[in-house]
Write a protein that binds this DNA or RNA. Structure first.
Lengths: 158, 158
DNA sequence: CTCCTTGCAAAGGATTTGCACTAAC
DNA sequence: GTTAGTGCAAATCCTTTGCAAGGAG
């Protein structure tokens, strides 16, 4: 796939250096739909025996967000990161904190809503809240920041 | 107004005690559209010479959210609180972090979107992002957590 | 070679918690 | 009187930052 090339190109243009850590972190995110936290990425890399520091994971993730290669999601627990940057929506489980993609078509017209005089809209987000399949199945409490893989419960990206 | 009575009723039902601090905090929020943070509430009360601790402000706000008397908003900086609990949407300024109400009608049909098998939707939120009037006017950087009153820039609740 | 990145540890902001005391009910 | 709420300080969680050493271009 030439996605790596495209990414590298973007990094060059943005004068971010293509370091081993950045490669690792971006690879760890690539193609995932479970919106991991910085900690999750960090632990997964460490478990694979890679050497990265949590600080670097944070710095890299934020940098990639600034470059437009990732999207940052705010919610109840720690921030989560989404490698799929095309406009789309999310579902957040109020029980476990997991975030899922929602396949519903993007409503471009919402970017042209009248907020009020002097307001400039750059984007909009829709977030559904409720209980995810994992949690309704188990019916028991969990920690706020996801544990392990979240699967996608049947949603996903078109 | 009999809203106080209603609230008191809810507090009784929920066996929350109607203490001086809770009254103060709820009063400080009531009718506001600027979605203050816990710190803001705390400082405003202290400036008025009231005695409250920041811990109590946090505890109270979270409790009132649990009771459904407030809504909690997650964003870039610290959490913000909204006394207007009827379904409505928000605009968040990516420069200063201020949050405004958006008058656009609530889209109930979005609560019936197909997320996927096993997903139960309890609510949805739409958040617009962009630059608020205050910031486009000033054109300069600011701290993430709002400073002082944010006005409402022409939006507001119907 | 130069400047960006990293790792580590320390600092920082936001929020919660333990505990003895106080105040609602 | 009971039991829940409060203030204070300490603790915790999440994230950023300073600095010296390392690595990419």
């Amino acid at each position: 796939m030439e996605r790596a090339r495209v990414i590298m190109q973007m990094l060059i243009m943005s004068r971010l250096r293509w370091t081993r850590q950045r490669k690792l972190i971006l690879d760890a995110l690539k193609g995932r739909t479970d919106h991991p936290t910085a900690e999750q990425i960090y632990h997964e890399l460490r478990e694979r025996g890679e050497t990265v520091s949590l600080a670097t994971v944070y710095r890299t993730l934020r940098a990639l967000v600034r470059e437009g290669l990732l999207r940052e999601l705010h919610g109840d627990g720690p921030d989560r990161f989404d490698p799929f940057v095309e406009p789309h929506y999310h579902f957040r489980c109020i029980r476990c904190g997991r975030v899922y993609d929602v396949a519903t078509p993007y409503r471009g017209e919402l970017d042209r809503v009248e907020v009020g005089p002097g307001f400039v809209i750059t984007s909009h987000q829709i977030t559904w809240e409720g209980i995810c399949p994992e949690c309704s199945r188990e019916g028991k409490e969990r920690r706020k920041h996801g544990e392990g893989s979240a699967g996608d419960g049947g949603t996903g990206r078109g």
